[in-house]
Amino acid sequence: MSVLADALEHLVRGIVANPDDVRVQLITTRRGRTLEVHVHPDDLGKVIGRGGRTATALRTVMAGIGGRGLRVDVVDTDR
C-alpha cells in the first residue's frame, strides 16, 4: 500500500457508514497515477456528495498532498 492510498482510505473511511467496506488502490499507468476508491454501494452518494462536492474535496486534498496529476476515481460499481 502506498502512503497516498492509505491517506485517502482514511479520509473516506471517516465519512461513510460502512468504513470496513472502503478499499483504495493506487494504479500507475503511462498516463499517470490514479487512486481508485471502492465503497459500499449505500455510501456512494456520501462519497460523491451533492453536485460532486465531496468527490471534489477528496481530489483537492489528495492533489495537495500528492501533487497535480494525481487522479481520484470513485468507482461506481460493486466491483
Partner: peptide
Amino acid sequence: SKLVGTRGATLEALQELTRLAVQQ
C-alpha cells in the same frame, strides 16, 4: 503548506471533509 494549498483551496477542502467526518 501542502494542506493549505493555493489560496487556501486545500484547507477549505480538508475542512469540508472534516465536517463530514464529524457529521458522520
